[in-house]
Write a protein that binds this DNA or RNA. Structure first.
Length: 164
DNA sequence: TATATATTGTTGT
DNA sequence: ACAACAATATATA
């Protein structure tokens, strides 16, 4: 059958905590750690509308990632953002597993500034698939998920990928 | 070495 | 128009 057009989400238990994965028309639109969000009940639809094939695929990709540290970005993503943000996120997806860039590096690539890149990173809706955790400050780790409060998670991910 | 200030591009109000 | 920011380079002691 054609892909479900329903907007729905499901939960995934990861070593870093419970993730909520939101999907709309066959694409991932948002991933958040549950303690971040007040929730997504409005985005949940009855299970009969769920495209089970897509769901299984996403779960298997996440399983692989938390197993090996390698992410397989063959899943359709639909982030919403400005043109500049999309350019940044596009650049992030080109960072291979096991590598990191600084905000300054990415900025140079886009002829922008490090601070602007940070702004774009913080508004990334799809962590893991868009590897915003692979962008660090020139000295130190930089922030994660909007502030400095969740750098633990960032450190965990980088450690998991063999950096640090 | 450490701390302060200047400069920076993009975004939200 | 303006203030805020997941930064960084430069000055100052």
């Amino acid at each position: 059958m054609a892909q479900s057009t329903a907007k729905y989400n499901f939960l995934y238990e990861s070593p870093t905590g419970q993730l909520s994965v939101c999907i709309d028309e066959g694409s991932i639109t948002k991933i958040i750690w549950l303690d971040q969000a007040i929730l997504a009940t409005t985005e949940t639809s009855p299970s009969k509308l769920i495209n089970k094939k897509l769901k299984r695929k996403i779960i298997s990709v996440l399983d692989d990632y938390f197993e090996s540290g390698l992410i397989e970005p063959e899943i359709s993503l639909r982030p919403q953002g400005t043109l500049f943000q999309k350019k940044v996120w596009q650049a992030l997806k080109r960072i291979p597993s096991g590598a990191v860039k600084t905000y300054g590096d990415v900025a140079k690539e886009l002829h922008s500034s490090s601070r602007a890149v940070g702004q774009a990173c913080r508004r990334n809706n799809i962590p893991l698939f868009i590897p915003c955790h692979r962008v660090v400050a020139a000295k130190g780790l930089g922030g994660f998920m909007g502030g400095y409060r969740h750098v633990e998670r960032k450190r965990w991910l980088l450690q998991h990928e063999g950096i640090l």
